[in-house]
Nucleic acid binder design. Structure first.
Lengths: 203, 203
DNA sequence: GTCTATATCGGGATAGAC
DNA sequence: GTCTATCCCGATATAGAC
């Protein structure tokens, strides 16, 4: 019931959002364990003491980061559906992330794959939530392959595309080799063209 | 010039080897940063103080672990060459690691891929040495594709197999799904059969 | 809501006795 | 070569003033 809230330079929600955005980036660049409270606080321009007003534990930040990534992913996929009319075009759009986000991926790998791998080694309780992020892409890809008309193979096709993207990101990160990534994307696109063709010629 | 050395219950070299073996396993299971001196010392049954007699810094242990993995990898590849007479058979053997080492990979991912990804995020000085481990596989695969007779595509084929293996390992680790892994291995094997066939029908 | 100060803990690394 | 004891630092987390 306090009117002064609207006059504050930053509301709690705004500060929280800035913290999550900074933590998201730092967790991506340095990994979850290697990111400290001090790092995040410094990135937002906050003292460590005040930090605990917004997040009590490190795991709480991780939960918030994963939730933010989920929301961001859903928004991105919805945007792609708007921009790409055909299901094959949407799958291609996904396959090309590894090119579009090339600079980041070369330095830090895939945000999803590297987080999942780290949480697995830590046997961290938030693993299921990171997996939900994977599921978000898998389900969306499966829907596209359903629309293409691959029948029972929709999920296998979706997983195949995910395997490609994770492998390409890992090797892009290891070697920093643009040419290889483009070669692999081309290979997946020709596979996709074959899948689309096979589906369209069926009765 | 001391004769007593040969009478010691453990020589320095033996103890060192046991430390490296324990560190190798722990780095794989928990990640490099999450593995402490105390963890390794406890695994070998050594006090932390004595530990520093063998390794002065954590990075020295990492170097030793990577070197041990290099030696192990070379021995494994040589063994495969002995057991598999054809180059295609050798590539298949590589592709099936993700099945043969299924239990470990589901829990901890690919030892090579996860280490490389972690060192990239840490911007660790040992990154080039981890990359040499990747190169070891890449070169060996390229030699097999050269023998198959794919001409200028040998390196691209080698990278394609590496991309597959890294992607399959990442998703095996994320989902713990055996069926998906076998499906992906089958997909790569049919790709490989196509490559072999195309090469053999050329003049 | 933001700050400073502080408690507490774990890990890397060293010194020196045996 | 192995041990115990210790130093030092960074990180999580808390208390309490403003």
């Amino acid at each position: 019931m306090s009117y002064s809230v609207v006059m504050a330079s930053h509301t709690a929600g705004e500060t929280r959002a800035r913290i999550v955005a900074a933590a998201d980036r730092l967790v991506y660049e340095r990994g979850f364990e290697h990111t400290s409270f001090a790092d995040v606080a410094a990135a937002v321009g906050l003292s460590r003491g005040n930090f605990y007003y917004h997040f009590r534990t490190k795991d709480e930040i991780l939960d918030a980061v994963i939730e933010a990534r989920l929301a961001g992913t859903r928004a991105m996929l919805a945007e792609w559906e708007r921009q790409e009319p055909t299901p094959a075009g949407r799958v291609r759009r996904f396959a090309r992330i590894v090119i579009a986000n090339g600079p980041d991926i070369r330095l830090y790998g895939c945000p999803l794959g590297t987080l999942t791998a780290e949480l697995a080694k830590l046997r961290h309780p938030a693993r299921p939530q990171a997996l939900a992020l994977f599921e978000c892409f898998r389900t969306w890809l499966r829907e596209q392959f359903d629309a293409i008309g691959v029948g029972d193979n929709a999920d296998a096709c979706a997983m195949h595309v995910l395997v490609f993207s994770q492998g390409a990101a890992t090797l892009s990160n290891a070697y920093g080799d643009d040419a290889m990534v483009e070669c692999e994307v081309a290979s997946l696109e020709s596979w996709l063209a074959g899948v689309v063709h096979e589906s369209s010629v069926r009765p």
